[in-house]
Write a protein that binds this DNA or RNA. Sequence first.
DNA 1: CTGAAAGCGCTTACAG
DNA 2: CTGAAAGCGCTTACAG
Lengths: 370, 370
Amino acid sequence: MLEHEATLCRKGGLILGLSMRQLAELAGVSRGTIDRALNDRPGIAPEVRAKILQLAQDHGYRSNRAGRMLRLNKSPLLIGIQMPARNNPFFQAVRAGIEQAARDLADFGLSVVWRTMPGYDSAAQVRQVQELIQAGVHGLALVPIDQEPVRRELAGLAAQEIPVIALNNDVSDGRRLCYIGNDYLHSGRIAAGLLGLATGPDPVPTLILTGSNQILGHNQRVSGFRETVAARYPWIQVEAVRENLDDDALSFSLVMEHLDGHPELRAVYLAAGGVAGACRALAARGLTGRVRVVCFDLLDETARCLRDGRITAAISQEPERQGYLAVKTLYDYLLDGTRPPDRIITKNEIIIREHEDVSEHTAAGQRRIP
Amino acid sequence: MLEHEATLCRKGGLILGLSMRQLAELAGVSRGTIDRALNDRPGIAPEVRAKILQLAQDHGYRSNRAGRMLRLNKSPLLIGIQMPARNNPFFQAVRAGIEQAARDLADFGLSVVWRTMPGYDSAAQVRQVQELIQAGVHGLALVPIDQEPVRRELAGLAAQEIPVIALNNDVSDGRRLCYIGNDYLHSGRIAAGLLGLATGPDPVPTLILTGSNQILGHNQRVSGFRETVAARYPWIQVEAVRENLDDDALSFSLVMEHLDGHPELRAVYLAAGGVAGACRALAARGLTGRVRVVCFDLLDETARCLRDGRITAAISQEPERQGYLAVKTLYDYLLDGTRPPDRIITKNEIIIREHEDVSEHTAAGQRRIP
DNA sequence: CTGAAAGCGCTTACAG
DNA sequence: CTGAAAGCGCTTACAG
């Protein structure tokens, strides 16, 4: 792995690279000077810097994370979290992941400060972000509302070199360190594959319920679905696409209404919320089990629907892990400049009824946080 | 969280518990003495120890992991890994997870030493475990062959207080720190649910191919499957259960033979290996796609079968994560005595064809290691 | 039985 | 521009 065996040192069987101390000895300077060179700090003669950098490269020097992490306890890192729609159970799962990461990293000099709000008001989001900056955060993770005021604010943070992570929802102009969340297009394709697997070869009249046509992720879940259906599952026949605004009552009446005109309905695909409402409508018409239901995110009511056999399957996107990784990724970046990939995509987990059956010791394991 | 606010100290917004240094000041002793009391070391007056322990409890003292982790670089930790069947692609995935963890923890004073072997010879496994002990490992993870010589050896290690993790396969007498792997019974149930979802209501004559009746995990996958089928999916009719010894050639001929007697076959459930062989037999009879195939573990050939539509779905058990967690769990235990649960159960991930479709940025994300 | 020192690898504030 | 010291929290020799 490391190229210059000569400079490796072994301790109790462990092969180590060299430390700043050893590098200092090699270069004949103090450790402070090594630090100045390696970390681009001012107050060092250019030729000394060059020499040290060369030496570091030659010997494969890599900064040791344990040293930095301990050091951070002396001048701790503060990161801010901003989340909209705080009553949404999905975001509560994301939040649980964030809190777990905060606990895990507390010993390593990290602390986390929160701002949450109900709903999706971009002005309020901007205000809370500014509050976090005022509080002195070194980095920020938020579920951005992709509108102009928010984008402008994020551009400002980019200028100040404050790293920002877009969590669960991306911003369209990409002024952020990275995106962590679902690939919505792909998840739509998975949903199609799943419904394809659960149906056919007889025709399957299908209703699509999306949350809002204004939301990119929802649209991508619809188009990913349609694309795959067209390519592989011709028996799935989309009769209509309706917006339910993630609302159960609206979802209920849309399904009822649809059934009036299309009694042959055999599948409902929900790209966003309103799952329980749709299930209620099917139950009201005695169609539970006869009509396949595929949806996203396994929380609360949805889990209950799955256990009751009212849902065929759900596709989950590792919400806790999204939250955990947001904190961890920011921490690593702030610790030693580790650059994450542009997008960190979480899995599309297909959850069926049997996942919810509790076997001996299983439940805890299946629901563990990253 | 911490109860005694009075003794908390704040630094840059971070709320910290107290350190050994502060505890030493409070107790009016040196840090060495604090260490002796807290870590049960000899050479300390009983009443001093008692006083310090009381004080630590009162102030909610918790040892800081960053301190310990850095310290480990001075006298590094060595853990041993023993794996059988080294050519098995499944174990290579586990291995990749172990190697990732080893890289992640190298900065924190961990190094890993390996012994692997072909096949499943318990005498050879015992020998390699002894070699690792000779090499001075502080802990051990292995895929144990659950036979008497191995169990006896593990009992010996338990007596020496060397922590051992059973990876992917448990030992029946439980002489180990913890088990990390699949819940085979549950995974059999998931397989049944999946096949149930992909079939019915017409009868589905089904062939079960298991690896070996000698292997507990395989038997559990069969019984979990049968149990759930009986309870929920009566149209799934098991015509036969045959052993293919994880062998593709045998698997091929068993399916061919079965089809001779049971041309109405509509599903094959593979509880272990030999997937490609079974698929080849179905293809030879022109039954690809007409006969549902559900199997475990997505590697190499199996992944290809899935992409080609020769498999309906596979159930994966996070092999990389199993390996990663084995190392991490041992490390945490050796670092500060963190006790893992008795069993750490990895997920049963249902993988369908659309998971393998590569979307823009998806592939890397879906296959990331923990 | 107890304490003072040194060290793991890093960074910062201070003195020159 | 550079170095020596102190410190993050822990543990281990060593001296008494």
